[in-house]
Design a protein around this nucleic acid. Structure first.
Lengths: 323, 323
DNA sequence: CTGTTAGCGCATTCAA
DNA sequence: TTGAATGCGCTAACAG
């Protein structure tokens, strides 16, 4: 049977379409009509056409999430929470994998102009700020824009400090930072900078390996570095993947973790909700970041004024790679 | 500036709206008008309103993907590929986390009736077949429906066979299957069944631990089982997570892998594209499954007739838990 | 090849 | 409180 429209409902209930529309949108109607219409809706299995509503209201109740790839535990955890919170507000989510390519990001940003979604939450590490037509509801994650773009990020400076505190607190005497970066300024760089800053300030022995992306021979560079600095006994890696690679290399070098060397990662990734963290780590508050981003983007979509910057706190998670 | 509409473009170019529409939809027009219109489009930054197109054509070029949770490497890999293939066909993807709850699945299935999407790809382990109004474009993954629902699955019988062949081929003499299942009939159960069948057929010593979900004390049950059957030296786990738990328990019991005991998981999960598999495993052809599902759902959305059953082949991936 | 027009299904204005 | 009418932006049918 063909899908029922509002007109069908109105006819069956013996009222005007306007009345049905108002009822659906929550305007109060007389009790008797309410019942008639409700019956008609049920009888016809009527479900409002969201496309038509979208056209009329110029609002889709949809948000696009742009990530480099959903196939990564940090992004998939984030996406999970974003969808959860959006869903609580009755919003739908477009999933957009950019593969880190600027052109794809730009393509997905157009979803707003096409009226396919009301706003965008994006994790990008390329240069797209120039393509964000201003005025579109856009919330960036962990990214510092020069322009007037809303963002939520975890406190990356605090991450470096915390890593320092933990390592020194458990008697590391020669610290090292191991990480990589690309040319776009993003906030993860601050992790290493503040870690280094703390070490220098406290006059603790410090070395670093900061590679320029794309990094092809990550593990061999790490190995070289660790051989060159054999006294390192406290390592802070820029993220948990890097930490896992460091762990592998340490193992190859026959160095015991955490007895000989302690290691802290960053991000707090887990393969999935019920699995454990992979190393001792500084955890980003993924769920709060998602909630924050959702609240912001919905507010922006409604044209409300918001606090454009949100910095959230991080926590240390103790696992097997520190004592 | 307000968004330009087709009418604006038509006015500026001095043509009718129909002409503009036809141009956008690829109908041939005279070279001179083509140029005029193209200029007007660029001048006005015109982007067609997809909501209006959707209303008119009753087609949204959007597909919904329902998964238990995107925060799981198998589902996020699958979702990654699904989005990639959809994108190649110029389709968008709604991400839907069901948390394994039937009500949420039903809610998301309604997206089709709301005209928010043209079809659905779903990985479900609950009893929703009754809620799928027939006729809606629905493709199920790894799930055996009693009704006339299209599905794509990997060859789960072959999975069990392959696991058997590999283990026996590398000289395991006492095989075991470790897994769990719930009450909904799904195809993963076939993995253990065919594995057991092969063992019986070949007269190889065989034990099994098949737990009923929800399993609360997975590892302790595994430990008990392995202690009760100390001669087991070849284990097939229903999936890679189960295999990881088995690995942990074996380690606790001081049994060397793969020297004392060999272990094969299933699914072939990786934390992300560039990371490695976590154990020796029988890999599901995730990417092909995604391609297949996308092709099927788009065909169904177009009203085409399709082959409703697709069984795809699996492969053994050798890693550190087998010799 | 092109302009005009009639809806797609709904929300909203204006009268009643 | 309600019905009727108008139009959101676009596509497709029709006439030229």
């Amino acid at each position: 049977m063909k899908k029922a429209t509002m007109k069908d409902v109105a006819n069956l209930a013996g009222v005007g379409v306007g009345t049905v529309s108002r009822m659906i949108n929550g305007t109060k109607v007389k009790q008797s009509t309410y019942e008639k219409v409700t019956q008609a809706i049920q009888a016809l299995d009527f479900i409002p056409d969201e496309t038509a509503r979208g056209l009329k209201r110029a609002m889709t109740h949809t948000v696009a999430l742009i990530v480099p790839t959903i196939w990564h535990p940090f992004f998939s955890e984030f996406a999970y929470h974003v969808e959860k919170f959006l869903s609580q507000h009755d919003y739908k989510l477009y999933l957009c994998n950019s593969d880190g390519q600027s052109e794809k990001e730009v393509e997905y940003v157009k979803l707003v102009d096409q009226n396919r979604c009301d706003g965008i939450i994006a994790i990008t590490y390329t240069d797209i700020e120039n393509y964000i037509s201003d005025g579109i509801p856009f919330v960036s994650i962990d990214r510092l824009f020069t322009q007037d773009v809303a963002y939520v990020a975890s406190d990356n400076k605090r991450i470096g400090q915390l890593a320092f505190e933990v390592l020194v607190g458990s008697e590391a005497t020669h610290l090292a930072y191991i990480g990589s970066h690309n040319l776009i300024k993003n906030r993860t760089m601050e992790r290493g900078e503040s870690f280094e800053g703390e070490a220098k300030k406290a006059n603790v022995r410090f070395s670093k390996l900061d590679m320029l992306e794309p990094v092809l021979d990550n593990k061999s560079q790490i190995k070289q570095f660790l051989i060159a600095h054999p006294t390192i006994n406290g390592i802070f890696a820029i993220n948990d993947y890097e930490a896992l690679d460091v762990l592998t290399v340490l193992d190859e070098l026959g160095r015991k973790v955490p007895e000989d060397v302690q290691l802290i990662g960053c991000d707090g990734i887990k393969m999935s909700a019920e699995r454990d963290y992979v190393v001792s780590t500084i955890k980003q508050p993924t769920e709060e970041m998602a909630k924050c981003a959702v609240d912001m983007v919905i507010s922006l979509a409604k044209g409300e004024e918001i606090q454009k910057e949100q910095l959230l706190d991080v926590t240390f998670i103790q696992r097997g790679t520190t004592r």
